[in-house]
């Protein structure tokens, strides 16, 4: 399967949910998906299009648009295509269905995205901070309006 047939198959299966799909090159395609359909799309990608490798889950903050995007990079062992699937979420209450039932390795990716952006993954089996301490929960340090950076280095030792 090449990049174009993958996009066509996706858009015909979910005509309402998939938008702004684009073939960037032979090996890269991208598409926006409606947030509530993200899990079904992943299930379809895994079962019917052999996209069986979730490379990453991450977030992007767009404070001016008031949106947070969650980005899934999904690759396949069968055909040389990497799909970038994005979903737009409102910035004040970003919530999306967890894809852990589809791709088990999304577990830690989602935990990390949660602690850094405050993105809630609904029905995640164990949503708690991964690398940040518990007391930093709620600061969401990778959001662009985060202001908790220390503004001074250690004092002069000499």
């Amino acid at each position: 399967m090449d990049a174009r047939t993958i996009i066509e198959s996706l858009s015909s299966e979910f005509p309402e949910a998939i938008s702004e799909s684009e073939v960037e090159s032979e090996i890269r395609v991208r598409a926006y998906v409606a947030a509530e359909k993200a899990k079904e799309t992943c299930q379809y990608l895994k079962d019917s299009l052999q996209f069986d490798h979730l490379c990453s889950v991450c977030g992007v903050d767009y404070p001016k648009r008031g949106e947070i995007e969650v980005v899934y990079h999904i690759a396949s062992y069968e055909h040389p295509v990497v799909l970038m699937l994005k979903a737009k979420l409102p910035r004040d209450s970003p919530e999306i269905e967890s894809v852990v039932p589809v791709y088990w390795n999304a577990n830690w990716y989602e935990r990390e995205t949660y602690e850094l952006y405050g993105l809630m993954f609904k029905n995640h089996p164990d949503l708690r901070p991964l690398v940040l301490p518990e007391e930093m929960l709620g600061e969401w340090p990778l959001r662009k309006d985060y202001e908790g950076f220390p503004n001074k280095t250690a004092r002069n030792l000499v």
């Binding site: 930093m136 340090p141 950076f149 001074k152 280095t153 250690a154 004092r155």
Partner: peptide
């Protein structure tokens, strides 16, 4: 460990370790 090094402005690092431990040699 002395001053934060390349990470001195990070949200996750601790500054001024010498206030927490009696450090003899830097």
């Amino acid at each position: 460990s002395i001053s934060g090094g390349p990470f001195y402005e990070s949200y996750s690092t601790v500054q001024n370790i010498d206030e927490m431990f009696p450090i003899d040699v830097f």
